[in-house]
């Protein structure tokens, strides 16, 4: 299967590993991720004002440039903005009209693209049972916690990614790779990255709560899908510390393509 792929700015630089290992793993799994020939910033944050059309335009451009039926995302933040903008496109006629008037596309976007996170692709298209069969280096004995953060889960009616209060997709992913998933209560809370620059102390409070919760539950390492969480969990850790990896790195490791 061929999928359009939106890596996003951070995956070209600070979160290069998230992208690199995703591509290697996808190839090993027989998934073709075709990067959009043209893309810009996803918009960085989903706008708080419903009349803010401009900051959603670049997301619309990405959707418009999608050639395949599904647009795969890797970064939680990009996924959040693209998915919500796509949802708005279908629900909000005013937004649709205004954005179309501004962009003046040759062919208007028909709203048919489905924005899919790579984890959803693994769950729904490959299947975790199938994934398990492709594992060559099972991660036996490792106690791994998933840090979901907020962007993948909420608002759940739009993201419809997983149960927002008791998500299991990443735990099932970890299990498929042969490791032991450790579930902990703060895995679906915010890491605080959005205020990290403005108020480092706030960010540290969130990170400490998350890490404390993870350590108490017995996690020995964490995975995340979000460059913001990655930065924050590593840089703003104070009392507790845990090694944090992108989920794609774990996947590449298990599939035996990490060094390739």
């Amino acid at each position: 299967m061929i999928y359009s792929y939106y890596p996003g700015c951070t995956l070209k630089d600070r979160a290069r590993q998230l992208d690199l290992y995703a591509r290697a793993s996808a190839a090993a799994l027989g998934l073709e991720l075709k990067e959009l020939t043209q893309w810009q910033c996803c918009g960085a944050v989903y706008p708080a004002a419903s009349d803010d059309i401009a900051s959603r335009l670049s997301a619309v451009r990405a959707l418009m440039n999608t050639e395949e039926k599904k647009l795969v995302t890797m970064c939680s933040a990009c996924h959040h903005v693209l998915k919500r903008t796509n949802f708005d496109w279908k629900q909000d006629a005013t937004f649709r009209t205004r954005a179309t008037n501004y962009l003046q596309p040759e062919v208007p976007y028909d709203g048919s693209v489905e924005v899919v996170h790579f984890l959803e692709l693994l769950r729904d298209e490959i299947g975790f049972d199938e994934l398990k069969k492709k594992v060559v280096n099972p991660l036996t004995g490792r106690k791994i916690g998933a840090f979901y953060g907020c962007l993948l889960l909420r608002p759940s009616k739009v993201l419809s990614f997983d149960d927002p209060e008791n998500p299991t997709i990443m735990e099932n992913f970890i299990r498929a790779l042969g490791a032991e998933p450790v579930s902990y209560p703060y895995r679906n809370e915010c890491c605080g990255a959005y205020v990290a620059m403005e108020d480092q102390k706030s960010a540290q409070t969130q990170v400490e709560r998350a890490l404390n919760s993870a350590v108490a539950a017995g996690c020995e390492e964490l995975i995340t899908a979000c460059p913001l969480c990655m930065y924050n969990l590593v840089e703003n850790a104070t009392v507790h510390r845990l090694p944090v990896k992108y989920f794609t790195e774990l996947l590449a490791e298990a599939l035996g393509v990490k060094e390739a």
Binding site: P185, Y186, E189, N212, S213, A216, A217
Partner: peptide
């Protein structure tokens, strides 16, 4: 939020 931490529920 109710979060288990050790044998306590926070």
């Amino acid at each position: 939020k109710v979060a288990r931490e050790g044998d306590k529920l926070m």
